[in-house]
Design a protein around this nucleic acid. Structure first.
Length: 412
DNA sequence: AAGCGCCACAACCGCAAGGGC
DNA sequence: CGCCCTTGCGGTTGTGGCGCT
């Protein structure tokens, strides 16, 4: 794609965006949603290609973006995730609500790499530099997941995170993830596993490994079994929200809503979808919660229609931020790895097969959404969702809660 | 003050994948 | 099945600010 031929034909602008352009794009998307990106510049009156508009929206104008410097917690999480996922920035970004892949990528290249080297860690292999050098490895040769979406994660790290708990118990049952797992889903799984791995590191409630398998990884795939497919079942049920990871085969659909940050995590669908683990009460609870999906706000979920994309999402963010603030979550919204709340117990799942994308998993992982949800009874939640559409997020002038003017010149 | 290099960030570029026809 | 369009991702480049000389 790159520079579309249309960009030449129509003499489209390139380079930095002006405040006027931003405002046009912001207003347009706020009002109509983006729909088809290629038509956005035309409809918004911009001399830009759709791709450029999309990028600008995703990386800068999107109102759910968290501005400001990365917290230490966020940086650590990025390092953790990078060890597992490699340069899959979008997957990493999915774990960091309000952060974009571009932002994370830049941070990695400019800061974290340096920091790791200072600490004697090879930023590519995540091994001690001495070890890398001694092994005569070219640190740039092997990079977990780096430009190689089939490559596995750093086994060493996974060992550290997921396999350290000795298990006196016999192996648990295998739970198939499905036979048609796409690479996209695989990536999502990787992201989920990464989050789980990070969480596991913080907890010690591992009992025995649950082996989540896919036919792809075990039979048709020439790759060795992906260690990330292994997650502890007890952990899955007990230790915290990060381990509630599941796979859905329509992840691509969910990721098609760029405003819905943390998109890849949408593809990690809770157990409910498979119907294999949850107890009936939970399933019933889920069903009742699923009724919420018929609320006006939920009509916006699938996102390419109407003006609700950002709004619904934005409201989530308000909730997210509120709860994270009130709960004193450190790191400006970073993932709360200390959370031990059991969602299974508290029955505050709200997924159904039709609305799995309606929840932001990353927020869920962050622990803020469930907190919000738990604090609201169902009717309150309906009001909550109802307000989303009615009120939206943007002020009436179409500008977000922060002004993008900081971009003109150096910002942050 | 001017020149230079470094750094951080925004934006671009090229490619891959999915969906519709 | 192939073509086209669109979206999304990751690598790379361009730009402007800042600090040092």
């Amino acid at each position: 794609m790159g520079r579309h031929s249309c960009c030449y034909k129509q003499k489209l602008r390139k380079g930095l965006w002006s405040p006027e352009e931003d405002e046009k794009l912001m207003k347009h998307i706020t009002k109509y949603g983006h729909g088809c990106w290629s038509s956005v510049p035309k409809l918004a009156g911009l001399q830009r290609c759709g791709k450029s508009c999309r990028l600008r929206w995703i990386n800068y104008l999107r109102p759910d973006l968290k501005r400001g410097t990365f917290s230490e917690q966020e940086e650590n999480l990025i390092i953790e995730l990078h060890a597992v996922l490699g340069n899959r920035w979008s997957q990493i970004a999915a774990q960091l609500p309000g952060r974009t892949d571009n932002e994370i990528k830049n941070l990695w290249n400019s800061c974290i790499k340096k920091k790791l080297r200072q600490r004697g860690i090879d930023p590519v292999t995540h091994k001690p530099l001495s070890e890398t050098e001694a092994a005569g490895e070219d640190p740039h040769k092997h990079h977990p997941g780096d430009s190689d979406k089939t490559s596995g994660p750093s086994c060493e790290l996974l060992k550290l995170h997921s396999f350290t708990a000795p298990s006196p118990n016999p192996p648990p049952p295998l739970i198939p993830l499905g036979s048609e797992r796409s690479s996209c889903c695989k990536d999502s799984m990787a992201a989920a596993a990464a989050a789980a791995a990070a969480a596991m590191k913080e907890t010690s409630s591992l009992d025995q490994p649950l082996i989540l398998t896919s036919h792809e990884s075990s039979s048709s795939c020439s790759q060795p079994p992906n260690p990330m497919d292994y997650i502890s079942l007890p952990s899955l049920m007990n230790f915290n929200t990060n381990s509630l990871l599941w796979l859905n085969q329509s992840s691509r659909q969910f990721t098609r809503n760029p405003e819905l940050s943390c998109s890849s995590m949408y593809s990690v669908v809770p157990i409910m979808a498979s119907g294999s683990i949850l107890s009936t009460p939970m399933a019933m609870d889920l069903k009742s919660m699923a009724n919420l999906s018929s609320s006006p706000a939920s009509a916006l979920v699938n996102g390419t229609n109407g003006n609700g994309n950002g709004n619904r999402n934005n409201h989530y963010w308000e909730a997210c931020h509120d709860s994270s603030n009130s709960s004193g979550s450190s790191g400006g919204g970073g993932i709360d790895l200390q959370s031990n709340s059991s969602l299974v117990d508290s029955s505050i799942f709200s997924w159904s097969e039709g609305e799995s994308e309606d929840l932001k998993w990353s927020e869920y992982l962050q622990g803020s959404f469930p907190v919000s949800a738990a604090l609201l009874n169902q009717s309150q939640q309906q009001t909550f969702f109802g307000e989303v559409k009615a009120e939206g997020y943007f002020p009436s002038d179409g500008l977000g809660p922060w002004h993008p003017t900081s971009n003109y010149g150096k910002h942050l």
